[in-house]
Design a protein around this nucleic acid. Structure first.
Length: 554
DNA sequence: TTTGACTGCCC
DNA sequence: ATTCTGC
DNA sequence: GCAGAATGGGCAGTCAAA
């Protein structure tokens, strides 16, 4: 299949807003496509399947290098284009139109050729590999028409920005090959590869049904939706199964006898980084063949949870794994079982899965591993007590699960609800901004923030904020700050400190990235403090106190 | 040999 | 992760 | 209510520049 056909479909989809219409267009396209697996992933904006360890190793910076190389302009001009158009693909397209003469002998670019180039980019490693990667990519741009270049650039960043995601492609596959949406969804959740699902669906519904959970192939993880408080979860479900929400990292465990594999939420194989977790599972789990799920957490000697940053030091580590494992020992709290001795359990209700899970650990298992404590209740006061207990023990909050619900892989539904305390807020001074991309093109898409240092009468930066802003506000704020711009270089804007934002956050963290020495976790704009000026903004002392208090009690 | 930008992925 | 938005 | 698209801090690994 020619790549231009793919690019033209993308362009058409970009102008359509109706999901039904998008699915119709894609289904027609998939019906006629060869290289169906590749095309299916491409249309959804991914290159390799989620479980694959392949990755390009190209982000915005190297992409801009490649565009510059292909079109013979300076990198800063590429950046200027991205700044102006709010999109690397559009910038690339424009530069290709202007600067580049497509060689006459160049053949038509095919989907296959583009994919092969991506594979080659992925394979490149070692000395001078960045040059090699950018050269391969620049060559692609060299033989691409401008419109093709637009979508190659976006594919590289895995951001097609055409309004198409998994859901749309799932519906399109069902429509294209005349199988039910549910069956497509089921197959996808269990295999994590829309390409494979499309190819199998094309063979027929019978083949599609044959795709199933397999040990060694991670299942998409079920996710929780936010609830406003504990009471509302009981109103929603009647009876809830309550568990602590730990500040850790999700892991899925695939066990075949003594063979243990660990997967992260993005389905990365993280087995090698967590040998201590593997060992506690080897020794502690009685099941021979199973898929289990849990949360790994770091707990200090005092029994209190350690900062999330400590857990991050263990993840994806390749070197000095053992030494850091001793330094930051992990605990594993198991909360689900999806598969046992050849049988899938995802259709079993939570209570039944839980009943099975409780038999998973041997009597003499290591103390580092547990089945996550759970309470089933419909009593609001009991639930509140558990929630308060979670908070005072230093955890994030609770999960309230519907005891009757099955495990729905990849879904963020209302059968699992998470409850966390309402965010704290700080009043911080806006000292800068960054131009946005996509629908935030030509608007300030995020803002840099600072707190006051009253002793020096100066400002200390403490991070940025880019969410919690409505589209309407984005426009208003960009207008508001227009007169306060001190400098505007590439994507970065410096702003005269005058405006104060009230910023919500989950936690104050130590940070070496900001002069204040602190940063906010999950910052969001709550409101513009029109009643406050710079002198009323929060101070570094207050930040320090809040940080201490938070460590003291959590 | 050291430093720092970049990338991908945890939350 | 959080949040907003169009369907 | 869902799916998609904006955006956050911070860690390890990789590679290139200093």
């Amino acid at each position: 299949m020619k790549f231009i056909e793919f690019a033209e479909i993308c362009e058409k989809l970009e102008s359509v807003t109706s999901n039904l219409e998008m699915a119709r267009i894609i289904s027609k396209f998939l019906k006629s496509a060869d290289n169906l697996d590749i095309v299916t992933r491409f249309i959804e904006g991914s290159i390799f399947p989620a479980w694959s360890s392949e990755e390009l190793g190209i982000g915005p910076s190297l992409l801009y290098d490649a565009i510059a190389m292909a079109t013979g302009v300076k990198k800063r001009q590429v950046k200027a284009g991205v700044r102006e158009l709010g999109d690397a693909g559009l910038a690339c397209e424009k530069l290709c139109e202007k600067k580049m003469q497509r060689p006459l002998f160049a053949g038509e670019l095919t989907v296959r050729h583009v994919y092969k180039s991506f594979e080659a980019i992925s394979r490149a490693g070692g000395k001078a590999s960045q040059k090699k990667k950018t050269r391969i990519l620049a060559d692609l741009f060299g033989s691409a028409r401008p419109k093709e270049a637009r979508y190659i650039a976006r594919l590289v960043l895995e951001e097609l920005r055409i309004g198409v995601g998994e859901g749309t492609v799932r519906d399109a596959i069902a429509q294209a090959f005349d199988v039910s949406k549910d069956e497509v969804e089921r197959a996808y959740m269990l295999t994590n590869d829309l390409g494979l699902v499309a190819v199998t669906a094309k063979k027929g519904a019978k083949e599609l049904r044959r795709l199933d959970i397999e040990l060694g192939r991670p299942v998409k993880m079920m996710l929780a939706q936010v609830a406003k408080d504990v009471e509302s979860t009981i109103e929603e479900m009647g009876e809830v199964a309550l568990e602590y929400k730990y500040d850790g990292a999700r892991v899925q465990i695939h066990k075949t006898n003594s063979d243990i594999l660990l997967y992260s939420r993005r389905l990365e194989n993280i087995t090698k980084s967590l040998p201590d977790v593997v060992d506690m599972l080897k020794d502690g789990v009685s099941f021979k063949q199973a898929i289990l799920e849990g949360e790994v957490i770091a707990i200090g000697e005092d029994g209190k949870p350690r900062p999330f940053q400590d857990i991050l030091r263990r993840f994806r580590r390749k070197y000095e794994v053992k030494r850091i494992a001793r330094e930051i020992p992990l605990h594993l709290s198991l909360f689900d079982v999806l598969f046992l001795d050849g049988e899938g359990l995802i259709h079993e209700p939570l209570v039944e899965r839980r009943r099975i899970l409780e038999k998973s650990l041997k009597k003499d298992h290591a103390p580092m591993i547990e089945v996550s404590p759970q309470t089933i209740t419909s009593d609001i006061s009991v639930a509140e007590r558990i929630y308060k207990g979670a908070i005072s023990a230093g955890h994030e909050g609770v999960l309230a699960k519907n005891p009757k619900s099955m495990y729905t892989p990849g879904k963020r539904g209302k059968n699992w609800l998470k409850v966390k305390p309402v965010a704290e807020t700080l009043d911080l001074v806006v000292v800068g901004g960054m131009w946005g991309e996509g629908r935030r093109a030509n608007l300030i898409g995020s803002y840099s923030l600072a707190c006051r240092n009253p002793t020096m009468d100066s400002l200390l930066d403490i991070g940025r904020v880019g969410t919690g802003i409505t589209d309407e506000q984005l426009v208003e704020l960009t207008e508001l700050f227009k007169d306060l711009v001190l400098s505007d270089v590439e994507m970065d804007i410096q702003i005269k400190p005058e405006i104060v934002f009230e910023i919500g956050y989950e936690e104050i963290q130590r940070s070496s990235n900001y002069k204040s020495g602190f940063a906010l976790r999950f910052p969001r704009l709550v409101r513009v403090r029109e009643d406050k000026s710079v002198k009323d903004a929060d101070t570094i002392e207050r930040v320090r106190e809040l940080y201490k208090k938070q460590k003291g009690q959590t």
